[in-house]
C-alpha cells in the first residue's frame, strides 16, 4: 500500500514537472515569445485604448471625462 502512494506522489510530481517543461517548449516552438510588442498589445482590442472611461466612480463621470479630454489635448499639443 505504501508503495502505491509513493508511486502516485512521485508520478504526479513528475507529470506536473514535465508539463511545465513541455509548456515552455510549446511556447518557444509556437513563437509565443517572438514578438513582445504584439504580445503586450494583444489584450487591448482595436477599439482600445480608448478615451472613454471604462471604470469610474458613479459621481465623478463628468469630471473624469474632462480629465481625459485635457489629457487628449495635452497629447495633441
Amino acid at each position: 500500500m505504501i508503495s502505491v502512494y509513493y508511486v502516485l506522489v512521485f508520478g504526479i510530481m513528475l507529470l506536473f514537472g514535465a508539463s511545465i517543461v513541455w509548456g515552455l517548449w510549446w511556447a518557444l516552438r509556437g513563437g509565443q515569445f517572438s514578438d513582445f510588442q504584439k504580445g503586450a498589445q494583444s489584450v487591448l482590442d482595436d477599439d482600445e485604448p480608448t478615451l472613454r472611461p471604462c471604470d469610474v466612480f458613479p459621481d465623478l463621470r463628468e469630471e473624469y471625462r474632462k480629465e481625459l479630454a485635457r489629457r487628449a489635448n495635452e497629447r495633441k499639443a
Binding site: F33, Q37, G39, A40, V43, E48, P49, L51, C54
Partner: peptide, 15 residues
Amino acid sequence: PKVIGRPIYSYYLSI
C-alpha cells in the same frame, strides 16, 4: 492596461 488604456510597460519582463 484595460483601465488606463495603455499596454504593459515591458512584456518581456512580465514573461
